[in-house]
Design a protein around this nucleic acid. Structure first.
Length: 844
RNA sequence: GCCCGGGUGGCGGAACGGCAGACGCGGGGGCCUCAAAAGCCUCUAUGGGAAACCAUGUGUGGGUUCGAAUCCCACCCCGGGCACCA
């Protein structure tokens, strides 16, 4: 008789596994590989329940796959660069490195305490020079391929983080993804990775990611934002309104509405604006709009239903399709960084243009009429412009019939419509337009004006310009003597930035910006394949063996950010010849958040449930099984303490079952009793649970996998209750106990290992023993109980042999007492028999 | 506004178109005990009924089907993402 004592056995097995190198893996061509990966953590401090959930899911998947015969890579590491380390250092007066490495030690200890099956030999920390050196290397390779650019443009500036941000990192209402401060627009020269070169491929390949949640793919497609349309050329008129040969191109998704263009818009930042109005009576008003736009923060500029403002420039452009002269306005709702920064305004079909037209009393000629529009009878077929305004309250952006549109009148208009192609072709023949595609996705701004990051390996030379640091000089080491508590960055360190030009040898200035930490996390999954390589980021052969990641697990918050960047890096490395696949993560599981009373747990709110406390009371195994049992993995989960007691009861019940069975069967070799109906029932229940548990793990329904284990244990207890100890089928009970231990292994690895060795007396690790098989024949019962429905309602039950003839079943069903009652006064019209399922009688 | 999810007992949640509510929590009753803890047995959707059983029931309203939580149409509510992207 032994007692379940997790606090004693858990540390014991953790030490044993690590001493024996149980989780150490190498490439092995004899077994199928499986790469199971959880998004690596930022070392923010202690682990929280979200970590427990994320890494437990991965651990169960990894351990189960191992028992199923896969060669499983299951690594861990730390996303160790980043701002919180600097902020914490400023607060505590220490160094970001000290804070970071201390937190990594704490988290690593917690992960070991949870019993996660990591190959610790492959651990990476992105702030180690051995790691970030290869990030610099990849940057240089991308640069060689023309994918790196330093340029000036309006960028997102977070005043609180004191650095610029990439577009993806400005979330919600224009706030910083990390600190939630409002982001400002600034014109700055910055480093970019040209992710837009891959826009189309990043969009197209989403279709191949059949193992990804639709939600995540939809978000990425939305973010990439592909629009089909046309570039249309307008001719600028001079100050007297006479056409010149200066062309201004616009992008539009609705070239079919070109006849409805009644004015033309320029973004306030458009370079043409100041030239057009310089010295004219319009200059003052226009510059007011420009100044207002410039002073507004990104938030104000982007904020929802803002009133549009603009001013007339005094100039006109010529509409290529009908030669009409339309006025050029400056408008604050036109964005400089989408399309060309110029827009043809069609107020009848575009709500924004419609509002602008109403505000400034500009004409709204209708050119596309929806079916059933009251104007259709009078305007249908009219080619010339006869009606300059409408009485509508809103624009009509839908498809419909073209009117007042010259030769195109009468055609169907709309996105990708007949008229759209006709107008585009017509323009094309005259060199005034062509089909065109625009993306919402912008290049990835990767430079950060912060210390704790990967230095950008570049030098500014007064004679040679921008010069990459030669490969053999990598890594550019991040100096440790920068005092962030005084607000210092690399730009305050002459020892760092004073350098020599690698090209001409003259005095030069080293780049002092560091890279966005998302560059570090965009390729770490490749480094795990060959973590200690000091001559390359990874050996392509090893990456070829392990990659792509078969199962990736992490939070939905990275649906765009990390997952999009990683896909981009993979494609770049592929084009560099280092990888032979297109996508890094074959299957993706986005786990839900762990909340408390519906609110996100956070230290500032003070509503944190510490995993350590739960481990101290119940052990890691109970916490692991419980957090998986609470909800399906992709759903948010509300933490509750009550259920944990129930999980503790279950584990003890399972322990006692194995323990007592081991004792009762230790001296008995043969079955005491011939297998009878009770044994058959137990076999059936056990086989069903084994089948369900394995299936459910493979489809990530851990909650129902665990409930299958509970049913398994309940079935065994029912048998023990119904059959006295000395009459039991001991061989059967012994295999029941053994299989239970095996199935517990992925969920409660310490308990299973202890039972395996100390209670069942088996040798070798339970985690290197094959997952239990079950006999499909055991699933088949001799008799089945069929519900019998009369007109769709269950009225009685019928027990028949599984192989009973249909005619016999029908006869027996119609004779059931309660069926007879409900058939009173009715004629049986039809009887449907679904073998093994039910009998349905239709009567009327 | 557009795009994704999701609405099932007191609670977390189960249900290849086939007995709705598995499994667990919580609760009621009982056994064991001097008592408790632990454990064990048992009941637990709602209304009616002593019970057998009957009626109702998976957000709302329709439809398909012998049969719908599940499929189709329309709508309501909740959560999330995107949003002046031409």
């Amino acid at each position: 008789m032994t007692k379940y004592d997790p606090l004693a056995i858990e540390p014991k097995w953790q030490e044993t596994w690590e001493r024996d190198g149980l989780h150490h893996v190498t490439e092995d061509s004899a077994r199928p590989k499986k790469y199971v990966l959880e998004m690596f953590p930022y070392p923010s401090g202690d682990i929280h329940m979200g970590h427990v959930r994320n890494y437990t899911i991965g651990d169960v998947v990894a351990r189960h796959a191992t028992m199923r015969g896969f060669n499983v890579l299951h690594p861990i590491g730390w996303d160790a660069f980043g701002l919180p380390a600097e902020n914490a250092a400023i607060k505590s007066g220490s160094h970001p490195a000290t804070w970071t490495y201390a937190n990594i030690e704490t988290q690593a200890a917690s992960f070991r305490r949870m019993g996660f099956s990591y190959d610790w030999d492959r651990a990476v920390r992105t702030c180690d020079p051995e790691y970030y050196r290869w990030g610099q290397w990849i940057f240089l390779k991308a640069w060689e391929r023309g994918l790196v650019e330093r340029r000036s443009s309006p960028v997102n500036w977070c005043p609180s983080c004191k650095t610029v941000l990439a577009n993806e990192q400005v979330i919600g209402d224009g706030v910083c993804w990390r600190c939630k401060s409002k982001v400002e627009k600034r014109e700055l020269e910055q480093w970019y990775l040209k992710i837009t070169e891959y826009s189309q491929e990043l969009l197209d390949d989403l279709d191949d990611l059949t193992g990804w949640p639709e939600r995540v793919k939809a978000m990425q497609a939305n973010w990439i934002g592909r629009s089909e349309g046309a570039d249309v050329v307008f001719m600028l008129c001079d100050a007297d309104g006479e056409p010149t040969d200066e062309r201004i191109t616009v992008f539009t998704t609705r070239p079919d509405t070109l006849f409805g263009c009644s004015f033309f818009l320029l973004a306030p930042e458009h370079p043409l604006v100041s030239r057009l109005v310089a010295g004219t009576e319009y200059e003052a008003e226009v510059m007011k709009v420009v100044a207002k736009a410039a002073s507004e923060s990104a938030v104000e500029r982007a904020g929802g239903e803002k009133e549009k403002t603009g001013a007339f420039t005094g100039r006109f452009v010529v509409n290529p399709v009908n030669g009409a002269k339309v006025p050029v306005w400056v408008a604050d709702y036109v964005l400089m960084d989408y399309g060309t920064g110029a827009v043809m305004a069609v107020p009848c079909g575009d709500q924004r243009d419609f509002e602008f037209a109403r505000k400034y009393h500009l004409p709204i000629p209708p050119v596309v009429l929806a079916d059933g529009d009251p104007l259709l009878p009078s305007l249908g077929g009219v080619k010339e412009l006869v009606l300059e305004d409408v009485e509508w309250e809103v624009a009509c952006p839908a498809e419909g019939t073209l009117v007042q549109s010259g030769r195109f009148t009468g055609m169907r208009g709309g996105k990708k419509s007949e008229a759209m192609h006709a107008v585009t072709d017509w323009l094309g023949e005259r060199g005034l337009g062509e089909e065109s595609v625009n993306f919402r996705l912008r290049d990835w701004l990767i430079s950060r004006q912060r210390y704790w990051g990967n230095p950008i390996p570049a030098v500014h030379c007064p004679t040679c310009g921008l010069v990459p640091v030669p490969e053999d000089q990598l890594p550019v080491v991040l100096p440790m003597d920068v005092d962030v508590t005084k607000g210092e960055t690399l730009a305050d360190h002459p020892e760092f930035y004073e350098t020599m030009c690698p090209k001409c040898g003259g005095a030069a200035r080293r780049e002092t910006d560091t890279m966005d930490t998302f560059t570090c996390s965009s390729w770490y999954y490749l480094r795990y394949c060959d973590a200690r390589n000091d001559s390359a980021p990874f050996d392509p052969a090893k990456a070829g063996y392990w990659m792509p990641v078969d199962q990736y697990i992490g939070g939905i918050e990275h649906a765009i950010l990390h997952l999009l960047y990683s896909r981009f890096f993979t494609k770049v490395l592929r084009d560099l010849g280092l990888l032979e696949f297109d996508e890094p993560f074959t299957n993706l599981l986005t786990q839900g958040m762990v909340k408390l009373d519906g609110a996100t747990m956070s230290k500032s709110r003070g509503n944190v449930v510490a995993p350590e406390d739960m481990i101290a009371k119940y052990g890691a195994d109970a916490l692991r099984v419980y957090i998986l049992f609470m909800a399906p993995p992709d759903k948010d989960l509300d933490w509750s303490y009550e259920g944990l007691d129930g999980m503790w009861r279950f584990l003890n019940r399972a322990w006692r079952l194995v323990d007592e069975t081991a004792e009762e069967t230790s001296n008995v070799l043969d079955a005491v009793r011939m297998p009878g109906p009770v044994e058959k029932a137990l076999r059936r229940a056990v086989a069903a649970s084994v089948a369900k548990c394995g299936d459910d793990i493979e489809r990530f329904q851990f909650n129902t996998a665990i409930s299958a284990l509970m049913e398994y244990v309940n079935a065994a207890y029912d048998y023990r209750r119904d059959v006295p100890a000395d009459e039991r089928d001991h061989a059967l009970m012994r295999s029941v106990a053994r299989d239970l231990t095996l199935m517990l292994a992925p969920f409660a690895p310490h308990m299973a290992e202890e039972l395996w060795h100390e209670v069942l007396g088996e040798s070798g690790s339970v985690h290197r023993t094959p997952w239990p098989e079950f006999d499909p024949a055991a699933l088949v019962a001799d008799e089945v109980e069929l519900p019998v429905q009369v007109n769709g309602k269950v009225r009685d039950r019928l027990t028949v042999a599984v192989d009973a003839a249909e005619s016999d079943i029908v006869a027996a069903a119609l004779a059931l007492p309660n069926v007879v009652v409900h058939l009173e006064g009715k004629t049986v019209r039809k009887v449907v028999v679904i073998p093994g399922k039910l009998v349905s009688v239709v009567a009327g």
